[in-house]
Nucleic acid binder design. Structure first.
Length: 584
RNA sequence: CGGGGCGUAGCGCAGCCUGGUAGCGCACAUGGUUCGGGACCAUGGGGUCGAAGGUUCAAAUCCUUUCGCCCCGACCA
């Protein structure tokens, strides 16, 4: 491709609305343009990258035995109505009406539609398993789209769905997909981690996320330095940490006038904050109604809200939402904020009382006395109080790995893929059944597997960029090579053009910067666009019969005899796992 | 949805407080000089000042309403 014929509108200045690195660079490099909040159009360069990613995803899905389909994005209300998601989804669902008043929405995900597809034609266990996927635009009216392609209202997603005869078989499908995802993320050239994840509202049992490591990631993940353990901080756990070894003495009531916070109480009593107990009072909203819960964690720990919500969901039904309760609400249970403790709460059976399991291993903690101005010392969980023990603390850097005892580290990540075992959540509601070998009717066991294809375009940049621009992994770069004649002399242009043609014939995607610009401008643009390999045709080198070869991610260039340039480039491209298709 | 900020030429901005009919840099066009890390000189084209209504002799500027965008938070299969 000749630069003078390409539509690559680069920008020198940073568009005001962009703050995230990938957003800035996608706009500056002329990859995308914004059409509305969370709505983007792909320019030629952006689409090339998007197609590359989608192509790798498609190849690996096909290789894993999945079959591509294409479902509509425009969907009649009835399908989501069947599973209750027409209501559950709320404002995130983009709804519209047709001329006759019929209600529709744009698909945010397609469990219902695919389940309908399968239930129409699958009757027997002989027709299973099936794994169907599509690559398509999804629509979600996000409360707050942001950061360019990282969180859009319209975005490209690969969504796959597996259908099996049993849970055991469903896990086989899940593992097949997990392996395919590993190959995909490796081929994309991304640094990622497979992490255990919260299933969220989709209603699954087992799930894992493919988190691409990036400073700017929205997700916090925990990973072991010694073994394969990695988890989203929402579900991450650690081995029982070091305990507070105080003397096991009787609990005593001590006056702590005006001392309410952990720091104040610990300082006042001369104990470390790890020897105290922190109380969190929540309002708990379930479908059945609103209740309250007390959650205790060690003074130096933080409770994780998702873990608390999950812990509360185990006993009295799924929790829709938790929020911190007010002092007035707490007073209804005789609780005085600042002095809340686990002792003597039996009078309020409707108040759920949980304690992080870490509190069970200490010999005695300072806790509120449930009385204004007083705390209790040496409170021993199990002796003085009997809260339900749960794991709700947020794992921290340096904690011990639950699998191997190794040191856990914390990282930021961007969710690039998410895989679930769904079970019969959708199939049961939608009557998607089959007859098994005994002639018994059973619901199909499902799994679902998503990859945010357009998000990965931005994710790759978040992970790999510098001051000057993007550093694309070769497998997804818009072009493999850029050839830059550094000057106007006809022989420079001719040599560059010959190399360009030769590479193109070999199947290399190559951009020839034939613009009438100074070399500096071309170098700046090449760096901005992030083309992985650059060949400069310069006067000095040409005089010696050499061209300058430089990788975007390397500092130094090397001078290569003209005759060897093409083969050197081909070699590097093949090394990156890219298959080239020479022109016939 | 709560908090904050911003809409003036393709991009980045000034002008607004104190009303007088729009300006700077980049980009673009033409000519010339330059030519290995975003050159310079000269000339030129380009704007319903987000929209609507109001006040006024006169509105980018003051008032009201409204739309849009960004950031933080809530939310996020």
């Amino acid at each position: 491709m000749r630069y003078t014929q390409a539509f690559i509108p680069t920008l020198k200045e940073v568009p005001k609305d962009a703050t995230t690195p990938s957003h800035v660079l996608l706009l500056r490099g002329g990859f995308v343009r914004m059409v509305g909040a969370g709505i983007y159009e792909m320019l030629p360069l952006g689409l090339r990258v998007l197609h590359k990613i989608a192509g790798i995803v498609r190849e690996e899905m096909n290789r894993a035995g999945a079959q591509e389909v294409l479902m509509p994005a425009l969907l009649p209300r009835e399908y989501f109505e069947e599973t209750g998601r027409w209501d559950v989804y709320g404002d995130v669902l983009l709804r519209l009406k047709d001329r006759k008043g019929g209600e529709y929405h744009l698909g945010p995900t397609h469990e219902e539609i695919i389940t309908d597809m399968v239930r129409r034609d699958v009757r027997s266990y002989r027709q299973l398993p099936q794994n169907l996927y599509q690559i398509q635009m999804k629509f979600r009216d996000e409360a707050r789209p942001r950061a360019g392609l990282l969180r859009c209202r319209e975005f490209m997603m690969k969504d796959a769905y597996s259908f099996d005869v049993s849970e055991e078989k469903a896990f086989e499908s899940y593992r097949t997909m997990r392996d395919a995802y590993h190959r995909i993320f490796q081929r994309l050239g991304l640094d990622y981690r497979l992490v255990e994840a919260d299933s969220g509202a989709i209603g699954g049992k087992t799930s894992a996320e493919f988190q691409v490591l990036a400073q700017t990631g929205e997700d916090a993940i925990v990973a072991c330095g010694a073994c394969e353990y990695a988890a989203n901080v929402e579900v991450a756990t650690s081995v029982e940490p070091a305990r507070h070894e105080g003397a096991v003495q009787a609990s005593e009531r001590v006056a702590t006038p005006g001392k309410k916070t952990i720091d104040e109480v610990a300082a006042f009593l001369g104990v470390p904050s790890a020897a105290t107990m922190k109380a969190l009072f929540f309002r708990v909203i379930r479908d059945a109604g609103v209740t309250h819960a007390l959650v205790f964690v060690r003074g130096d720990d933080e409770a994780h809200e998702v873990k608390v919500q999950n812990a509360l969901s185990r006993d009295r039904g799924a929790v829709r939402e938790i929020v911190l309760g007010t002092a007035e609400e707490a007073a209804r249970y005789g609780l005085v904020t600042g002095y809340i403790g686990p002792v003597g709460l039996a009078a309020h059976p409707d108040l759920e009382v949980l304690a992080d399991r870490r509190l069970a291993s200490g010999a005695g903690f300072v806790a509120g006395a449930n009385e204004e101005g007083f705390h209790l010392t040496n409170v021993v969980v199990g002796r003085d109080a009997a809260p339900r023990l749960v794991d709700v603390r947020t794992v921290r850097d340096g904690d011990a790995c639950p699998r191997c005892g190794g040191r856990l580290g914390t990282y930021r990540g961007i969710e690039g893929g998410h895989i679930f075992v769904l079970g019969t959540h959708y199939s049961a509601k939608m009557n998607c059944t089959f007859l098994d070998e005994d002639g018994k009717e059973k619901p199909v066991v499902m799994g679902c597997y998503g990859i945010g294809v357009s998000r990965l375009v931005a994710t790759a940049i978040e992970q790999s960029h510098d001051q000057d621009g993007i550093l694309w992994p070769l497998a997804i770069a818009p072009y493999h090579v850029v050839v830059v004649p550094a000057g106007k002399e006809p022989e420079l242009l001719e040599t560059a053009a010959r190399l360009h043609d030769e590479l193109e014939r070999a199947g290399v995607e190559v951009l020839l910067d034939d613009r009438d610009e100074r070399p500096g401008v071309k170098f700046k643009d090449a760096d901005l666009l992030g083309v992985p390999l650059r060949v400069v045709v310069g006067k000095r080198g040409l005089a010696e019969g050499k061209l300058e070869l430089k990788a975007r991610n390397e500092k130094d260039a090397s001078m290569v005899p003209i005759a060897e340039v093409a083969s050197r480039l081909l070699e590097r491209i093949r090394e990156a796992g890219v298959r080239l298709v020479p022109m016939a």
